[in-house]
Design a protein around this nucleic acid. Structure first.
Lengths: 342, 342
DNA sequence: CTGAAAGCGCTTACAG
DNA sequence: CTGAAAGCGCTTACAG
């Protein structure tokens, strides 16, 4: 297949390659009629600029990197979807990189990628965005970064997030409004900043309502289904049960729900369960899980906007932060506390 | 940060850039001591060749494209994981592209990507791999392709697959061996070739066992949880129930399981349920689902091997096909048929 | 507003 | 086995 280059377009349009370049890149200082004519020729020839030539001659690669801890997770899948869509909007492409922190050369791996690829920008998903070695690396390469839901070092780069703390607080308040006063909480992975924020939100709401949280009502999980199962077993083993359990993500909530079912505990009749994330799994549960909708795909979209939406030449203010709104999704796994139980 | 180029390495090593190039690319005809010396300098300077310069001057982009229908699915996530790992092994990078067939310009989108990116190779996941327009496009761009679990046009390109038909047959035989003779089947999305193969495997086993399949025992699903729910409702609505249900993927099997639970039907006591895929969800179910393990990540890995593992210059034989082995994973959702029920 | 020249950092094709 | 020259297809910096 004959490859169409900028010269072909220029020759056919009767202008210089530079003018074609200007038109393609939406630069100013091209007469309107020439611009239109060039664009017509571009379409006729189905010309697409070669990304490698562009990347070599300019410093822009038209490549956005998405760095995730676990590419296997639903979270990563959500982010990808949002980012891919938006990259396409701007004629960029998305390169996914797994950060394998368990490998001794994990940082060198990222470094190699950055040297090879000269990314136009990078999206650091949680919890990668909280690893300072990673941030330093990107800073040293001078690559614009957007952090997703960072928990440490606020203001170190642009960021996109929801207010995890407020969301967890709102969920807890809702449970309290339903009459629950004995609520267990399943904490998330300690490496994720969101885990701490969600816990704080829970604690805030309890404090406001004058509820003290006994230590035995707080379980440590790691955001996995399995850890939810373990937490459920621990909480529901004997008759000293809470009337509600708030797990800090849906996978764990789902695990808790499974344990409740095995024990024959009616949900929400005898036990309310709430999760966080609005993971696909929350709709596959029965009863479906009450949860917090976190717009992951949207967050990735916004991250791409921050990276390339505005003038890509202009450095953004570090610390620029976009906060997206969450929503409480009340489904069937939560309900009013039963008479005499409170 | 000062960028290290091939010239820097050449100057420091006291050789020409071309020699450095030879060393980097593992070409022959370099004296061993020079090779080692250059490699040492490369390490000292932490030199990484610029992917854009490479891509521009050679026809190789060091980029592998993964084309998926639904980047949101667990299937896509599995593939990504396998492909990313293996790409890194070969110093390549993975670019994920969503094929949005519902858009009128979907083919033009892919075409644009191919013109811009000059991929070294592409992995087409099911069912993208069965869309002939896509195959034609890659052929016209002369880009090596590996199809994953293709159902049509065998031999049109390299392919990696498991024997879906044999796997479904084996699962069905297992159910029959457990005493089941009244088995319902939930078919998958008609656009997926695997759906037809799994159905055939089921039919094969039934025919062998002398079991005829009444039309009312065959439900049409689309691989989604929701369609599993619908199929479950249809099958389990009245007392005329089969003793086992084989759904052609785990999400649907999970849906069927949920319906059984709501109806108070004991699994596997009164009803055996089997799925396919060994999806994460199959381990989150209770009872856990009996299923077929399909090594998705491994398939993507092998696809990368086919694309770049061997000599990348040499064209592969179209039709070269690698078949990976599956395994039947017997968990708790299936069991012997109850006395008097068969 | 438009263009000619030089260069990005590699590899290809050709010598020797 | 090693290297000098040319070129990949764009953009940058400079003129006019």
């Amino acid at each position: 297949m004959k490859v169409v280059t900028i010269k072909d377009v220029a020759a056919r349009a009767g202008v210089s390659p530079k003018t074609v370049s200007r038109v393609i890149n939406g630069e100013q200082h091209v007469r309107a009629e020439i611009r239109e004519h060039v664009m017509r020729v571009v379409d006729e020839l189905a010309y697409k600029p070669n990304a490698f030539a562009r990347g070599l001659s300019s410093s822009r690669s038209f490549l956005i990197g998405l760095f995730v801890d676990d590419p296997f997770s639903g979270y990563a899948a959500d982010l990808q979807r949002g980012a891919i869509d938006q990259c396409r909007m701007y004629s960029h492409h998305l390169v996914i990189e797994a950060v394998e922190r368990e490998r001794p050369d994990w940082l060198a791996q990222i470094d190699a990628t950055l040297r090879e690829l000269r990314l136009s920008g990078a999206i650091l998903a949680a919890p990668v965005c909280d690893w300072s070695e990673v941030l330093e690396l990107f800073e040293s390469h001078d690559i614009p970064v957007v952090r997703l839901s960072p928990a440490t070092d606020p203001g170190r780069a642009q960021q996109v997030q929801i207010d995890d703390r407020a969301a967890a607080r709102e969920m807890t308040e809702r449970l309290i409004a339903l009459g629950h006063r004995d609520i267990a909480f399943v904490r998330g992975h300690t490496a994720h900043g969101a885990a701490a924020l969600r816990w704080q939100g829970f604690a805030d709401a309890c404090a406001d309502a004058g509820i003290t949280i006994p230590a035995r009502r707080v379980l440590q999980g790691d955001f996995s289904f399995k850890s939810g199962l373990a937490a459920g077993e621990a909480i529901l083993a004997d008759d000293d049960r809470p009337t509600a359990i708030f797990a800090s993500n849906d996978k764990m909530a789902f695990g808790v729900l499974m344990v409740a079912m095995r024990h024959g505990i009616a949900v929400p009749g005898a036990l309310s369960i709430a999760g966080f994330d609005d993971d696909e799994i929350s709709r596959m549960a029965w009863p479906q899980l009450t949860t917090i909708n976190q717009p992951n795909a949207e967050m990735a979209k916004v991250a791409v906007d921050l990276l390339i939406g505005n003038n890509p030449q202009v450095k953004k203010e570090p610390g620029e932060s976009v906060e997206l709104s969450y929503s409480l999704v009340e489904r069937e796994s939560s309900g009013p506390v039963m008479n005499g139980m409170a």
